[in-house]
Design a binder for these strands. Structure first.
Lengths: 247, 247
DNA sequence: CGTGGTCGGTGCACTTGTGAACACATCGGG
DNA sequence: CCCGATGTGTTCACAAGTGCACCGACCACG
């Protein structure tokens, strides 16, 4: 198992990188650099030339923010180890549209967009993998658009906490009410009330600067199904990067 | 002008196709087929294999819809002659995530994804153009996500009417309150009230099945700036498909 | 000319979310 | 040990949006 010829080996803990077979990973590996990024680190600003791709590893999490006239940024999507950020759709060398910040710090693998593109030129499956991930990313944003249009704050708050929990693998989600409020684009006092509602039903406890989820199932029943819809698309699209039959 | 060597000639009235120089357009032209599509025609359904690219021409308009648990579809974005639909990000041969329907009928140019990909393989500028448009499409969806999170129904309704007017070039926008309501993901009676508010200020008149915009500037002042933000990104990204200096 | 179906305008009771205000809890640093 | 900064719980008056009901207007069709 540890020397499985097509296995992930000791690669960075990122799903895209681990999906690759050795031959394909070998095209990227030499250029990959593993770094640590703290929370609140700014990875890209609107208008920046995108030259580096970041792969969140382990529990690291980044957030795409869109500015608005009031100066308050609104969060649109989260990306963790299931994906990557930077030039995924545009292939780089274009001005970024969103601000991208590290939400939960940790390790990131990164490489230059030009090197990723060079590797893609040599491997059909690399092209497939990134085209498919780009499609998943787009689907994720579409789902968020719909979610923001029709789901209640309570549903979206529950969704957010679940997805953070999902990626960090911890029942304790560090998060102030203030942060949650700005991410959902709502007032702070209302999020406090929503949390109060969850706490009244023993779904979670609140600490200063964090929530502790006690009953994930109950929380899931309060959330919308948007996360599940997107996960389904990830599953059906990212399967099939390699021809069926093996792997 | 009519025989400008790099000009659009008599091409379909679609911005992407008209941006191309003759040499690049020649790679697509032979495979392009111009068809007429009526309103409400379904172009793609979730799960469909995407094999055809459609380029809306003239006043044609399509809508990306995301389903939800209630069966009510929610509109996310509109695409007209500034863009194209079908495999733009995924390069085709993947299950579609959104339902895509024709909102306003008219002519569409279309061709098989495989032929578009073959042409892209031969031309760097074709690859650039579509990568850049893909980036713009993504930006458009991001902006919609933020818009749905923080802007009022009135702002979004105004935005919708303006963008429909923009693309059809007509002050009369065929649209029932019911349609507008389901697109915005809100109740019908409330949209009636919003329209009533606009009418009370002489911004528009309402007909059965349509609104007639009387004062576009006033309507713009009631709308959010999301359309303008996205247009700015289109301008800055799609400029530069061809190396600077000429064109 | 009449009739039935869709569409639009409005009243009403209700829920959701806003924004400001204030008191209190918690935490780190001097 | 106190202090100031930040985070939390709660109240209140208000605005935004819901869902239903009902009536009248418009339109296509026979």
């Amino acid at each position: 198992m540890s020397k499985h010829p097509d296995g992930p080996g000791d690669r960075p803990d990122n799903n895209l990188l681990r999906t690759l077979r050795d031959a394909d990973f070998a095209l990227l590996g030499p250029y990959l650099e593993v770094t640590a990024q703290d929370a609140n680190q700014l990875l890209y600003s609107p208008g920046d030339n995108v030259e580096i791709v970041h792969f969140p590893c382990g529990p690291s999490l980044v957030s795409y923010l869109v500015g608005n006239e009031d100066g308050r940024d609104v969060e649109t999507i989260l990306v963790g180890r299931e994906g990557a950020v930077g030039g995924i759709v545009s292939f780089g060398h274009l001005p970024a549209y969103c601000r991208i910040v590290v939400k939960y710090g940790g390790s990131f693998a990164r490489l230059r967009v030009t090197q990723l593109e060079a590797a893609k030129a040599k491997s059909l499956t690399l092209r497939y993998l990134f085209a498919r991930y780009a499609d998943c990313l787009l689907a994720q944003v579409f789902q968020s658009t719909a979610c923001n249009a029709i789901h209640s704050i309570e549903q979206r708050a529950a969704k957010w906490i679940l997805s953070a929990m999902d990626r960090t693998g911890d029942h304790v989600v560090p998060l102030t009410h203030e942060q949650l409020a700005t991410m959902l684009g709502v007032g702070r006092s209302y999020t406090s009330r929503v949390m109060q509602g969850f706490r009244a039903e023993q779904i979670l406890e609140t600490r200063r600067g964090a929530v502790v989820v006690r009953d994930p199932e109950a929380l899931k029943s309060r959330a919308c199904l948007c996360n599940e819809a997107v996960k389904g698309h990830f599953d059906s699209v990212l399967r099939g990067v390699y021809p069926a039959g093996e792997d």
